[in-house]
């Protein structure tokens, strides 16, 4: 499939005398792909993701074909805003081009799915790490992203929220979006995995975790591809939300 986003020879150096963080990275992500970038702390994963999301300019190299809209979930999201989570999401939805009522509806549905403890009316600055992470996740998918970039998305989330996260990733990939995420292995079951070491990217052995196809009924039929590690969480979340499970099948 044609690549959604293609990085060619991307290098990054913070300051002229500093050691480069990335050397000549080539990476292609196609529609429907879930690509994991792994590596030790400080290996440059976040920098690579920021470059892919268009937040940081590479020192050398190019990123082609970055589609719109992009969704970006930061590694840590410590908001200082006194706005409520719901008001924040409505503003971000409008910035992403939604009308006010559509943004309100979408934000409410996402917060309900992610079960934000303390409610949507809590000021952002008072949210716990896990709940702030849920808001960070929600803002990235207020409109279905064509490229979803997630930096350590599993950290700080409780088990049900991890199930929803796996669903959101599967939904994005299923509707033709490209997903790039960092993790330390184990949590996600990507279609491709790379190891970032010494500023260079090398293919890593793809996860052995098998994929399951889950068919959900209800108002509309949805087909999700989820890793075995998240199958139960996704199923229990779907049932809790009143969906019917039409089938589960190992791929």
């Amino acid at each position: 499939m044609a690549p959604v986003v293609r990085a060619r020879g991307v290098a990054k150096q913070y300051g002229r005398r500093a050691r480069p963080v990335l050397y000549g990275i080539d990476l292609e992500v196609a529609a429907g792909e879930v690509v994991a970038v792994r590596g030790a702390n400080g290996s440059g994963k976040s920098t690579l993701l920021r470059i892919l999301a268009g937040l940081t300019r590479p020192t050398a190299g190019t990123v082609d074909g970055r589609p719109r809209p992009v969704g970006w979930v930061p590694e840590r999201f410590p908001p200082s805003e006194r706005l409520s989570a719901a008001a924040y999401l409505v503003h971000q939805g409008r910035i992403r081009g939604l009308r006010a009522d559509a943004a309100r509806e979408r934000a409410a549905r996402l917060l309900e799915r992610l079960a934000l403890a303390g409610g949507a009316g809590t000021p952002m600055a008072r949210l716990s790490k896990g709940n702030a992470q849920k808001v960070a996740l929600a803002q990235a998918v207020l409109t279905p992203p064509a490229l979803l970039v997630l930096d350590e998305p599993w950290s700080g989330l409780d088990a049900p929220a991890r199930g929803v996260l796996a669903e959101l990733i599967a939904e994005t990939a299923g509707s033709g979006g490209a997903v790039v995420l960092t993790d330390h292995g184990g949590s996600a079951s990507p279609t491709a995995a790379y190891l970032l070491e010494g500023g260079r990217l090398a293919p890593a052995g793809a996860e052995a975790a098998p994929l399951y196809e889950i068919v959900l009924g209800g108002a509309e039929e949805t087909v999700l591809k989820v890793p075995a590690t998240h199958r139960d969480a996704v199923l229990s979340d779907a049932l809790a939300r009143g969906r019917t499970v039409l089938g589960v099948r190992a791929l």
Binding site: R50, L55, P74, P78, P79, S80, Q92, I95, A140
Partner: peptide, 13 residues
Amino acid sequence: AESPVGRAVTGVN
């Protein structure tokens, strides 16, 4: 008034 990470999020959106 917006945190640096918040500003980056707004930038992407």
